[in-house]
Amino acid sequence: MRHIISVLMENEPGALSRVVGLFSQRNYNIESLTVAPTEDATLSRLTVTTIGNDRVVEQITKQLNKLIDVVKVVDLSEGEHIEREVMMIKLKASGQMRAEIKRTCDIFRGQIIDVTPTTYTVQLVGASDKLDAFISALGSASILEVVRSGVCGIARGEKVLSL
């Protein structure tokens, strides 16, 4: 099963490499990974999506908690949560394809953020499966380049991940 694990950690050099190293060292899988500082400059928030059975995911959270730089760990998938990912996608857009792509983009509530006579660059925000659906709706022929941010997530309701 896919899990979204959120990690609050010290914003220190080497902290990220400890997390990434742990995953490769213990043979855990990383589907996506994002990390950035929080409103508190001494803390970073890292989100990792991983696939594993309950036992593996339990080990992942326990092992993450053991890292000295890690302050808190939560498996967002255990409760109600919101996940978002940003994708920027550069598309061939000439001739009648131009209008077709614009329409698809509107359906998915994407925004065209850069235009040339032959290309569109589209920004799309949503859960990862929505981004996947957009890609498959377009077909590979028109795609020039894809960049995705990886997933970040937050719990619904009043629950917060903080110190």
Partner: peptide, 12 residues
């Protein structure tokens, strides 16, 4: 980097 997988923690 070399010691990271075999230490409890390391400092620079």
């Amino acid at each position: 980097g070399i010691s990271r997988p075999v230490v409890k923690h390391n400092f620079s």
